[in-house]
Design a protein around this nucleic acid. Structure first.
Lengths: 246, 246
DNA sequence: CTTGGTAGTGTATTATTGACACTAAGAATT
DNA sequence: AATTCTTAGTGTCAATAATACACTACCAAG
């Protein structure tokens, strides 16, 4: 006996794909093309409706793969967003009309976030007939739909997650300096961290391995390179640590 | 241009409603009635398809209200569950046939959890032509659909949440003893906590106010009653604390 | 050879955590 | 009245973790 006001919605996933450029967190956003061939001035998170035979995680992985070619990444669900009016801003409605057979149907979306090394993916200006670009989070204006809200939620979830698991390593090249890692944590947590205390704490975890290699060509004292030691990380995770709180 | 494999699912909410009886965490579960009027032996989380004009949070509040009469409670989203086969266990399919016009349609559910004072709601044996019962979490067997997985996720989220916010007070009467609070934290965190250290820490937060009242009629030293001081809690929350880790 | 810029290091103070054992009060039983 | 049972309530010490803080080392560019 379905209730007569039951809803028959669509379900999508939207991905907050974060990258780090040694200075700021960036989000991968797409521009929408309008009917007249021009680009909308409103940016959006990449997302898609889910397919019949895939689960939610698979749909999120697919969206990420189709956009960046990247596969098999850490991709964490951050929540479901389903306000009835989440697609009803005028610009959003205009765009939906050009692209959907059913622009009026309600869409509930499941948000995911993931962290990638920015240098592993350089946006192709014309990929998918959409513009794709990295945007520093502090430069982000009004996004499409409820995507500002989704982004905010994902950033909060990232802050919580990084206090429990060192997921940040996904954002860095395989070899990195402690300075980069330090700036990354500051960018994610949005607060300054004392350099010596940060170094002491992160090194005490024992999940960093230093390489016998240093920066070259930098106009200052060269820094050692480190890599993330996944084996020691797993050992640590199994014995049950609680937090990486900074 | 919707993709030809796009999905046209239903969306529901499922609630993990937790109560505490001074000993164990309990979950409010419903029994399903079958076509022949008998009760299915499989219990399920209370849930419902969402309506056209309500958002996800409202749907979860509605389910809670219809079941318990309670309103306006802390209700936290724990995640979306949408595996294509999440409704496909034989018993679940049999039950769906008796109750739905479209037993085959895929349903994606958004899970919420909430904490209530068990004594504020005593299940009525016959409400909604379903059985409703409190079940201690350690006695829970196979639930309907993917509800075991949902429950597990919600309990983990509760453990994380209580480390950040003292949400546990929702589970207790307005006046309670430190002993009750202590046992509650042990039940939620599933580990013993040292009595003196627990008391010291929880009292240092300054969000408890002791009443000039003691237990009466107990066959042992009577305990003081305390109440949760929401005003001091808000002050504390605004100045930005990090955790209540135990 | 000076300048600018980042890398890298140690210590002292304070706050927090964790381990640990006995007395106090009431009710029930004898 | 005394005993027993049960939970309430309390303090200290040691180890660990958090915080605040300033200088030298190294490289490139001018």
């Amino acid at each position: 006996m379905p209730h007569r006001h039951d809803l028959n919605p669509r379900v999508s996933v939207d991905n907050v794909i974060l990258g780090f450029d040694d200075e700021n967190l960036n989000v991968l956003l797409i521009g929408r093309s309008l009917a007249d061939g021009k680009m909308d001035d409103v940016l959006a998170l990449p997302g898609d409706l889910i397919y019949e035979n895939e689960n939610l995680d698979m749909a999120a992985q697919r969206v990420l793969h189709e956009l960046t070619g990247l596969t098999n990444l850490f991709l964490q669900q951050a929540g479901a967003f389903g306000d009835p009016d989440r697609l009803s801003k005028p610009k959003d409605r205009a765009w939906l009309k050009t692209v959907r057979q059913e622009p009026e149907v309600r869409v509930i979306t499941i948000a995911y976030f993931t962290l990638i090394n920015m240098h592993e993916f350089a946006p192709q200006p014309a990929s998918f007939a959409q513009s794709v670009q990295w945007v520093p989070i502090q430069d982000i204006g009004d996004l499409a739909f409820d995507h500002n809200q989704i982004l905010k939620t994902c950033l909060s979830r990232l802050q919580e997650t990084i206090a429990i698991k060192p997921v940040g390593f996904n954002l860095l090249p395989t070899k990195f300096t402690l300075g980069q890692l330090h700036k990354l944590y500051e960018a994610i947590l949005e607060k300054p961290l004392d350099k010596r205390n940060f170094r002491r704490k992160i090194q005490k975890l024992g999940i960093l391995t230093h390489l016998d290699e240093k920066q070259a060509g930098v106009p200052h004292k060269p820094s050692r390179f480190y890599k993330f030691n996944e084996i020691k990380y797993r050992e640590l995770a199994e014995t049950g640590f609680d937090n990486f709180g900074f």
